[in-house]
């Protein structure tokens, strides 16, 4: 009799475990769906940029305005931060709290410097009189790149919050799930940046 009870308890336990894993997987899948809809948002901004890229209204065009080495540095910094975010997930998987914190701090620092470079670029353009009001091309450029920058800002906030979570609570299953989602978000932003780098900066430089 007692064996049967133990067996039943074990089954209930494993059932709960599987239900929990499935719930986590469902949540992560839901987040993935959100990211894909975010892709559609960026796609519409890319479409606007593609249509308006030559409408400079007498203002500077892409090849005149953008500095390629500057864009390359931004790209490398963001790519490295994507990598260090992956290392944070890896450490979280091994439950190394201190290493997770370390990689989060590195990711945050790289992300913040990327954002700083982007804002500095915006500042320089606006100071030269080439703000979003200058031409259709500049409007679409500012909206596209600033939307990405806004996502980066939210991502930085999220990294800060998760660091506090890891510090205060350690890596529980809930925290682990959120770290996975955060890393998906951060990698996704790097994926979007590939296309900004190619379409806005590189195509701009070769005057497509």
């Amino acid at each position: 009799m007692s064996e049967a009870v133990t067996q039943t308890l074990n089954i209930i336990k494993s059932n709960k475990l599987i239900a929990k894993y499935d719930k986590d997987a469902r949540d992560i899948f839901g987040f993935w769906v959100y990211l894909m809809t975010d892709c559609v948002l960026f796609a519409s901004l890319f479409a606007v940029f593609a249509v308006l890229r030559h409408n400079t209204y007498g203002g500077p065009g892409a090849s005149l305005l953008f500095s390629m080495p500057y864009a390359l540095v931004e790209t490398i910094i963001l790519l490295t931060s994507s990598f260090t975010c992956g290392l944070a997930v890896l450490s979280a998987q091994l439950k190394h709290n201190k290493r997770v914190l370390f990689w989060f701090i590195v990711t945050f620092a790289l992300g913040a410097s990327f954002l700083g470079l982007e804002l500095n670029e915006f500042h320089n353009f606006i100071a030269m009189g080439d703000s979003w009001r200058r031409s259709g091309f500049l409007s679409s450029y500012f909206v596209l790149v600033a939307t990405h920058g806004l996502h980066i800002t939210l991502g930085l906030l999220w990294i800060a919050v998760m660091s506090v979570f890891v510090l205060k609570r350690g890596i529980s299953d809930l925290v682990m799930k959120r770290i996975r989602m955060l890393s998906m978000f951060w990698h996704f932003l790097d994926v979007v940046w590939i296309f900004i780098f190619t379409i806005v900066y590189l195509f701009g430089a070769i005057r497509v």
């Binding site: 067996q7 089954i11 599987i18 894993y21 499935d22 469902r26 899948f29 996975r180």
Partner: peptide, 15 residues
């Protein structure tokens, strides 16, 4: 008692 996981939309078995 057969263990039958119910309602599996996304089945991963483990993360």
């Amino acid at each position: 008692i057969n263990h039958q996981p119910v309602d599996i939309l996304v089945s991963t078995h483990q993360p």
